[in-house]
Write a protein that binds this DNA or RNA. Sequence first.
DNA 1: TAAGACCTACCGGACGGTCGGTAAGACAGC
DNA 2: GCTGTCTTACCGACCGTCCGGTAGGTCTTA
Lengths: 212, 212
Amino acid sequence: MKAQRKRSANKDRLAEVYRAAAEIILRKGYDATSINDIANALGMTKAGLYHYINGKKELLFDIMNFGLDELEEEVIAPAQSIPNTAARLRFIIASHARLVTMGGGAITILVDEITALTPAQNRKITRRKRAHFDRLREVLNKLKSEGMLQDVDTTVATFSLLGMINWLSRWFKHDGALTEEQIAEEIANIALNGLLRPESRAAQRGLRVVRD
Amino acid sequence: MKAQRKRSANKDRLAEVYRAAAEIILRKGYDATSINDIANALGMTKAGLYHYINGKKELLFDIMNFGLDELEEEVIAPAQSIPNTAARLRFIIASHARLVTMGGGAITILVDEITALTPAQNRKITRRKRAHFDRLREVLNKLKSEGMLQDVDTTVATFSLLGMINWLSRWFKHDGALTEEQIAEEIANIALNGLLRPESRAAQRGLRVVRD
DNA sequence: TAAGACCTACCGGACGGTCGGTAAGACAGC
DNA sequence: GCTGTCTTACCGACCGTCCGGTAGGTCTTA
C-alpha cells in the first residue's frame, strides 16, 4: 500500500512538493500548516496532493530525512577530506550556516518539529540527529586533545554551535545587508575566536555575578 | 465586559493558569496544545478555564508579555549597575541563560511563537523583542568603540548570542551533568572567548573553503 | 486502453468558544 | 442566627468551523 516506488517521471514533481511543503512549514510551523495550504501553493487541491503523499506526518518525516541527507552530503562528507582539525571545524560551521541560509536548504531546521511525528518516526529522526551531534562533538574533542581548544565543555559547546546556526533561519533575510557567504564567515569567526579580543579579556574573566 | 479587574484572591490562581499553560505550550507548541490540555492540567474543564482567560491567543500574548517582563526584570535592569562593559555583557549572557534553564523561566522562548498572534499582538511583542535586541547590540557596539571587540559584525553577533541562549531550552535537562549555573558560565565563556585558543588560530584563520 | 494525474464531494472528529446553569461562600438587614 | 441577595468559580452540553483523510469520477498522455 505504501507509496514507496516513485518513478522518475513522478520524481520531479515530488521534489517540488517537498520543497513547497518545507517552505510553508518552515514559515508557519507544522501544526499551523494545513494540507490545503500546501496543495494551494502547488496549484492543486487537497485530494490531488494526496496522490503524492501518504499523510501529513509521513510528509514531515520525509522532508526531515531529506534535510538530514542534504546535511550529510554538503557538510559532513566534504569535511572528511580536510586534514587540519581546526580548519575542518571552520568548514563545518560555515557550510552548515550556508545550508540554512541558502534557498531550500533551510529544511534542516524543521528537523526539530519532532513532537509532531509518530513515536517510531521520532526515534529514527532523533537517532540521526544524535549521530550528527556526536560527530560534531568528536571534532571538538579531537581539537581538545590537540591542545587547541579553550577550557570549555565540548557538549555545551556543540549545542551552542548548533544553536547559533539553527537560529539563523529565524532572522536571516535574503535582502539583508550581508550575503549568505559573509554571514557564514561571521558566524564561524564568532564561534572560533569569540567576541572579545584576547588582550581585553581580563575585565570579565573570573568575574562572576550571581543572583540569588 | 473584559475581565480586567482581577482581585488578589483571583490572582494566585491566574498565575497558576499562566504557569501551567506556559509549561505545556513550551513542551508541545502552541498549535498542538488545546485549551482542553491546559484545563485538564489544572484539574478543570474547558469552560471553567474560560472563566480566567479571554481566548487562546490572548492567553499566549499574556504569557509572552510575562516572559518579557521577567527578562527585563532579571537581566536588563540589574545589568545597568555594572559599569565595565565587558563584565556587563558577561552578566547579561549568563543571567539570560539562567533564566532559560531555571524552572518556569523558559517562558522567554515562546516569545517566538509570534505567528500565532493577531497582527496587533504580533506588533507589540515584536517591538518589545526588537527593543531587547537593540539594547544587547548597543552593548556590543560600546565594546567595539572601546576597542575590546574582535572584528565581528555586531548584528550577526547579537543574533548568534540569542541563538546560543534560546537554543538552550531545546536541550537542557535538569538532571544533566552540569548545573544551570555551570552551563550559564560555559555559554558566557564560549561566547566571549570563542572555542580556539588564541595561539592556535593560525591553522584556520584566513582559510576559506567554498563550494560551488 | 490503460495508467497517471488530478478533481468534486464528502465524512468523522477535534477544536475554540459559548450558553445556561449551580454549588459554595460573603455579606447585609432584621 | 436566619433569610435573601449577590458574586466567584466552576461544569455539562452544545455549536459552527476547519482539518486530515477518502471514495469515486474525469481528463490527459503515451
